[in-house]
Amino acid sequence: MCDIIIMVINDMEFISLKDCYKIYRNGVTAVARLNLKIEKGEFVFVIGSSGSGKSSIIKMLYREEKPSKGEVIVGGVNVAKLRDSKVYKLRRRIGIVFQDFKLLPNLNVYENVAFPLESFGLKKSEIKTKVHKALDQVGLREKYKSFPRELSGGEQQRVCIARAIVNEPKLLICDEPTGNLDSDTAKEIMNVIEKINKETQTTVIMATHAKEIVNRMKKRVVCIENGVLVYDKEKGTYKTHENTKAI
């Protein structure tokens, strides 16, 4: 069973949500009848107002939340049916970037990035190579000995990105990665993520509120309102979806 999961995830082709619902215990419907397909290597913005359901969608992709109904397929695996004890195998193939960085304050940059690899039981030499490669990709190699408190917000987010990509995932999920950053720093972060997407063909799914970034980058835009998909367009913008109806 485990071997099958690894094999399928390695061969990650696309993400697919079929008739997907997420209804919380308090009765709130966060996602309703959502159908969405994302191809390998795509860069997709998931936009929508606060409480629209975009975070629930993002969380379902890495099985932090289970769909109430329907299928969520990541790399050929229906994550809704994945046993709890096997979820970590899915997450090892996915990189996650958080709005609040989620860095461990007692570990330096190198240790924070190496943290997942160590817990996977990789060799020290292998960890060193991978960590330095990831730090190079985000432009933080010189600061590998610094602690998070010694870094700016943008630098902390770059450490978070390095940690997300250190295991060379096929899918990078970003949950409002620029939410805590000023516009210049946000641009820098977006450049780093775009570079990763282009150079390594990593699929990027990003939940965001940043209109300026979405409008500038001209990527696929998926808009969720009240849990329903209302807008899905290649090279879409934040402005154009505002008068659309549910599709």
């Binding site: 193939r93 996650i96 989620k102 996977f120 940690r163």
Partner: peptide, 17 residues
């Protein structure tokens, strides 16, 4: 708990946590 939360999210197995 934050540390455990991060460990979970980056794919650490329950045993390793």
């Amino acid at each position: 708990r934050t540390e455990i939360d991060i460990m979970r999210l980056v794919g650490t197995s329950n045993f390793a946590i």
